[in-house]
Simulated assay, not measured.
Amino acid sequence: MDKSKVYYTNFHTTFSENLPQKLKRLIKTAGMEQIDFQNKYAAIKIHFGELGNLSFLRPNYAKVVADLIRENGGKPFLTDCNTLYVGSRKNALDHLDTAYENGFSPFSTGCHVLIADGLKGTDEALVPIDGDYIKEAKIGRAVMDADIFISLTHFKGHESTGFGGTLKNIGMGCGSRAGKMEMHNAGKPHVAQETCVGCHACERNCAHGAISFQEKKASIDHNRCVGCGRCVGVCPVDAVETDCDESNDILNCKIAEYTYAVVKDRPCFHISLVTDVSPNCDCHSENDIPIIPNVGMFASFDPVALDMACVDAVNSQPVIAGSILEKHGSEHHDHFTDVHPDTNWKTAVEHGVKIGLGNKEYELIKI
């Protein structure tokens, strides 16, 4: 297999070219305009940032991508799916409030924001893939309704997967609430009895008779439960919880298979910015200082090669003094493994190669 092409530019600017202009030149050189956008809906998958976390990508970068799509006759929209955990993006209304507060509005980005899996995280499309772990991926419907898929990723560390890159942004990010449950565990939630207020909202929304009440407290029969996640979405006090009981290696493999479900059979392009490389995910309501200096912007048609190029770029960087990485040391000679030694980021990349998602070997083309 020939090496995949990954295009790269650093964050240095000149008096005649600022960072948004440089990003536009990068993605044009990388071939994004080869895609036929004319009168096509183009989903731009991005993380809008959890409230309190400031390491997410600035909306200025999203505007560059949206504007180029419009210039080529397309209909862009920014999108993400609701979270499984309790936070500022657990339903579409809170999610939109968060996106707007963090600067992602039609006025700042030049396109609309759609939450792909609907109000309560249950609006999903079922995508058959017959993977090793996933047979039918549950993807936010707006993502699958788009004709073209573009990912715009903030590359950073992650406490469960080693790093959060393009595969994580697409695979986990595009999963509906039930999809996220499937990746994290067997997809069977439970009720925190001490939190339950006995309102019966979960029971009314369960189509499979899996929820019953004893002494005004709900419980879920896992023999009947199908893992749709509706009870998680409707609980007013967040008493319905999910376990993260899947091993990190299997989680990474499932993320690769969900990514495959999203990108197969349609034009796709991927952009990753290695900046503010925090040790943990942007889903946290806080972010620690970066573990390395800012590196640059990368783009490719191959999401696996793109992640590999970003990992290699990060591992070639010096450690920032006072960061968590410096405190952990460099025993593994791998920045992400040194920060999170219980993870193995390689499993997602290797599984992605196995299922035909992309190529681990790449040619880095600097512009």
Rank of each mutant, 00 (worst) to 15 (best):
V226E: 13
Y133C: 10
Q38P: 00
I134E: 08
L68P: 05
Y100P: 02
G171K: 10
D302N: 05
G187A: 10
V197D: 12
L119E: 12
I250M: 11
T109H: 07
Y61M: 09
I170P: 04
Q38S: 14
I255A: 10
K135Q: 15
F11C: 08
K138T: 06
V311S: 00
D67F: 02
K168Q: 03
D245N: 15
L306P: 01
V263G: 05
K3Y: 03
G296V: 06
A43Q: 02
K217A: 07
I134R: 09
I291D: 01
T337F: 01
A62P: 05
K168S: 01
H270K: 04
Y362K: 04
L93F: 13
N294G: 10
H340W: 14
E194F: 07
N82D: 07
T195S: 10
T14Y: 10
A192P: 00
N205Q: 12
L51S: 12
N223L: 13
L167S: 02
A313D: 01
P341H: 04
A321T: 14
V86S: 12
F269Y: 07
F77V: 05
L51A: 11
I129L: 12
C253P: 00
V319D: 02
S316Q: 14
V232R: 01
F298T: 01
D288K: 11
H340F: 13
H184D: 08
D94V: 00
V64T: 12
F155M: 06
E246N: 14
N53S: 04
C111F: 03
C244W: 13
C310M: 06
S272T: 09
R70W: 00
Q193I: 12
V240K: 04
G233L: 06
I150R: 09
E50G: 05
T195C: 00
